[in-house]
Write a protein that binds this DNA or RNA. Sequence first.
DNA 1: AAAAGTTTGTACCGATCGGTACAGGCGACG
DNA 2: CGTCGCCTGTACCGATCGGTACAAACTTTT
Lengths: 192, 192
Amino acid sequence: MRKKAATPSLAANRAGLLPHLGEVFREHGYEGASLTLITKATGLGKGSLYHLFPGGKQQMAAEVLAEIDGWFVRNVFVPLGEAEDVRAGIAHMFAAVDDYFRSGRRVCLVGVFALGAARDEFAAAVRDYFKAWGEALTAALCRAGYARAEAAALSEDVLAGIQGALVLARAANDAKVFTRTLARLKKRVGAK
Amino acid sequence: MRKKAATPSLAANRAGLLPHLGEVFREHGYEGASLTLITKATGLGKGSLYHLFPGGKQQMAAEVLAEIDGWFVRNVFVPLGEAEDVRAGIAHMFAAVDDYFRSGRRVCLVGVFALGAARDEFAAAVRDYFKAWGEALTAALCRAGYARAEAAALSEDVLAGIQGALVLARAANDAKVFTRTLARLKKRVGAK
DNA sequence: AAAAGTTTGTACCGATCGGTACAGGCGACG
DNA sequence: CGTCGCCTGTACCGATCGGTACAAACTTTT
C-alpha cells in the first residue's frame, strides 16, 4: 500500500465518537457539556480530543449536528421523496422517528440547540434541518393527495407535534406521552 | 403606621425583578444565565441580588418558575375552569397563550428548563406546570362536549403543538410558524 | 534498529463561574 | 442631628471553564 496509510484509528475513532459526543450534548446542552463530561463519556483525554477536533467544542457540536442531519437525510428525508409508495414512505418516517427518539426517552438535540443559549452559533444548521424535513414531508403529502396548502399546514403540525411531544415527555418523565402523540399524528396524516 | 414599615422597595423590587430575571433565563437557559448577565439585565449588583435571593441562582430560577406558574393559573387554568361559557374560556386560553409568547417571538421558559441541563433541579415544577395545564384543558374540553378520552388526547395535542411550534418558530427565526400553528389548533378544538 | 510520524496524558493558562464577606452608603425614625 | 438597619458596591474566594503546550509513548516506515 502506497497511499500514506493514514492511521485508520483516526477516522474510525471519529465516526465511533460522534454518537457518544451527541449523547453528552443531548443530555447536558452545549454549555452544559463540559470537557470533563466529554472526556468521561468518550474515554478520551483532552489531548486526543483536541487532536481529533482542533476546533474544540464548537467543532464537536458542529460535526454531531452534521451527523444527525445526515442520519435524517438518509433515513427520513430521502425515503420520503423516493419511496415508490408515498404512504409507505410516510409510515417509514414515523417508524424511523420513533426509533431515533427511543420512543420518547431521547430528546431532540436540534431542538435543544434551538432553545439553548448557543442558538446563534448553530442557527443555520438548526434552521436547515427543520426546513429540509418540512419540505420533504410537505412534498410527500402532496404526492399522497393533499392540496399544497393543506400539506404544508399538516407538515408543520406533524413537526411541531413531534418536537412538542418530546418536550412534554421529558417534562412528565413519561415517554408514553410521545408514543401516544406520534400515533395520533400518524393516524391524522393517514386519514386522507 | 405602626407595622414595621418594612422597606417598600424590597417587595416592589422583587416583583418587578422577576420578569427581568425570567427573560435572562429564557434567553440563555439556566446555565447560560451567568450572574454577570443577571446583574446587567436587572441593574442590580451581586450584593443586592444575594440580599434579595439568599439562595442564589437556584432561588431566582425557582421564583421565576413560580411566578410564571402563577400567571398561567390566573390567566389560563382558572378561566378554563370557571368561565360560564366553556368555549369562551378555551378561546381565552388561546388568546392568553398568543399574548404570553408574544405571538411566537418568545420561547417557553418551562420548556427550556425541561430540555436543559438543570432539568433535574426543577423537574417537579416543570412537571406540575404541564400537568396542571393538561388537566385544566382536558376538563374544559369535556365540558365542551368531548368524550373523556378524546378530550385527553386533544389536550395533549394542543400542549405539544404549542411547545413544538415555539421550538420551530425559534429554529426558523420566524414567529409566524407559531401563530399559524396556534390558529390551526384553535380551529381544531372548536370543530366539535 | 533507527528514524519519522501519530496519538496521548499531564501540567498549565487566563478567564469566568457562583458565591461570600464586609465596609460603607443611604434613608427612616427617634 | 444622631442612630439604627436595610441595601449595595467591591474585593475576594476556590472551583471549574475551554483551550494550549509539550514531552513521553506508541506506530509505522525505512
